[in-house]
């Protein structure tokens, strides 16, 4: 082997070592917000819009990390194993509860500690603007004849749960079918394949603004400020409300000071006029919950979901 070759080999090995040890130390406080959503997905967009405002109010550097895979299982595992020093949080959505219940991930939702809640995604029932159904009652009457067709965005999801429970509580027997996401289902509402769909307000906003959809009911405790004319399900005589949460969770064992800092910052954040305009445009509903409330809420949400999945035989 020529000498030149050996020297270049050594140089390469040196570079190799440098490449491996390339972890850079960051003196500033860095807070990583982990989401299971891909860049551009629902939770990702939510976090990226949140981050500059958090940095302004709380100081430090906030970054968003997409830990995809396993429908949230990987993100949960990453957060559960992290040090509870306030440097790593997980953006919670109902997905992490469903994944915990539907499969056997290495860390479940109960292995994380809910920190605070920020928002709710308003869930609505809607139909096409040119459909023959103008009210929820029309849709329910149709379903009473055994002809109704309802849609939910995903097979094992909060929307499915809403539709199944509505069917039970209203005592009607529609066919309920599921899709791969809100967009897929939206088409089937627009082309009148479905009488009614259940989904997030955000997903249907463009069609709603264009006057192609009609809201039938809000599946929450209160009416939406953007649509004061649309009554909740409870107001329409069906005792059903869900809250699709968006908040943060961290590893177990976070200190009281850490929790208190977030509990103080989030209400200020939600009142911030600039941010407020942004999240109202994105159809998010402010829903601050302090640590204690959030933990109890999560426990109840998990128990309710588990009961639903068990009762319907999705899990044994």
């Amino acid at each position: 082997m020529p000498v030149g070759g050996r020297i270049s080999l050594l140089a390469l090995l040196a570079a190799l070592a440098a490449a491996c040890g390339g972890g850079d130390a960051e003196p500033r406080r860095v807070v990583t917000l982990v989401t299971h959503s891909s860049p551009g997905g629902g939770s990702d967009v939510f976090l990226r819009e949140l981050v500059p405002h958090l940095a302004r109010l709380m100081g430090g550097t906030f970054i968003v990390e997409n830990v995809q895979g396993g429908s949230g299982a990987k993100a949960m595992a990453a957060v559960a194993q992290a040090k509870p020093d306030g440097s790593l949080f997980y953006a919670t959505t109902p997905t992490f509860i469903y994944t915990s219940l539907l499969s056997d991930p290495s860390a479940r939702y109960t292995d994380l500690e809910p920190l605070v809640n920020l928002f709710f995604d308003p869930e609505v029932l809607y139909t096409a603007a040119d459909s023959r159904f103008t009210t929820l009652r029309d849709v329910l009457d149709r379903a009473r004849t055994g002809q109704g067709r309802w849609g939910a965005a995903n097979p094992a999801s909060l929307e499915r749960q809403v539709m199944e429970q509505l069917k039970q509580k209203a005592g009607v027997s529609p066919a309920i079918t599921t899709f791969e996401g809100g967009g897929d289902m939206l088409i089937n509402v627009l082309n009148h394949t479905l009488d009614m769909g259940a989904g997030e307000l955000q997903e249907i906003r463009a069609q709603l603004d264009a006057g192609r959809l009609r809201l039938l009911a809000v599946v929450g405790d209160e009416r939406l400020p953007q649509f004061p004319g649309v009554a909740t399900l409870k107001e329409q005589g069906v005792d059903l409300a869900v809250r699709k949460f968006r908040g943060l969770a961290g590893p177990k064992g976070m200190s009281a000071e850490l929790v208190a800092a977030w509990e103080a910052a989030v209400p200020k954040l939600l009142d911030d006029p600039v941010y407020r305009k942004r999240y109202m445009d994105n159809s998010l509903q402010p829903g601050f919950m302090p640590h204690g409330d959030y933990a109890r809420f999560m426990e109840a949400f998990g128990a309710e979901t588990e009961a639903f999945l068990r009762q319907s035989g999705v899990i044994q």
Binding site: G40, G183, Q207, R212
Partner: peptide, 27 residues
């Protein structure tokens, strides 16, 4: 329609949303 027809289209939709644009009939 504001409806992504594939994964790639969904990322594009995310790009629109991040810049405060809501794709759909009104765009």
């Amino acid at each position: 329609l504001g409806i992504p027809s594939s994964n790639s289209a969904a990322v594009l939709l995310g790009g629109f949303l991040l810049h405060g644009l809501i794709p759909g009939p009104m765009l």
